[in-house]
Amino acid sequence: MSDITDPLTQEFQAPSPREMLKQRAKGHLGLLTGLGIVGLLALVAIFAPLLAPHDPYAQSLMTRMEPPVFLGGDWDHPLGTDHLGRDYLSRLIYGARVSLMIGAIAALISGVIGTTMGVAAGYFGGKVDAFVTFLINVRLAMPVVLVALAVVAILGGSLTVVICVLGLLLWDRFAVVMRASTLQISRRDYIAAARAVGASTPRILLTEIMPNIFNNLIVVITLEMAHAILLEATLSFLGLGVQPPTPSWGLMVSEGKNMMLFEPWLVLIPGAVLFVLVLAINLMGDGLRDVTAPENRS
């Protein structure tokens, strides 16, 4: 019991910023819920081969359109089978891979593009800023879904094409947010101090600016990942995204649409999972913003 010391002699220590962050995170219900669901779905995606009861591509004409368990089906196919007799649960599980992979890679690509542009605009200002702002305006003027559909139609819908198209289209929010954050940071005294002691521009950008806008970057990455996942599903639903027989949730909704009249669950289940994933990522992003920058809470 030697760790009990007299409180009067103990030196008072203010909690470190990291500890305060942890405290705030622990009390944030939305962040915890979001993290929990995203973590769970990420695990499902990683361990898909172990978790899926059947091969997601295996067709069986004898067992087509079997209903899920809660609609009177049997436990061999807990969520039923689709119009080709493929196990719906297995396709959902593998679909998590498609969604999360596309979302993560697209967000990373657009993150690199947008952050580079935003930081350059915010730090250098002047003509660079004007040019980046112009590019942002051009990008915002292009209708995303329409352009993405057209490009995918021309180049053919493969996973790579969809990821690249989304990555090249979704950098606007990164650029806007990173530009504003950099603008704010580069006016601080410690940047002037770094410059005064002769730090080079790359050094200032990497060791002074980047660490200070990193929190905002993480928030935008999560929100844009959600955006990319929604867009992939939309493109696949419209038939110009990920191509069959890949198990994409948007594609599953689209395939189920024709049988919606009799078997609405074919549409309801994949859409609901998509909704939950995107909601969880958004909750996570909003939560991260609250926790890392409590002063910006709206």
């Binding site: 929604l230 909601l279 909750l283």
Partner: peptide, 22 residues
Amino acid sequence: SVAGQALPSFWFGLILIVLFSI
């Protein structure tokens, strides 16, 4: 507003069709 941002519009539309048309 949080749920609205996460709702896939194509799916929302299909749900409305299932509910109000079917």
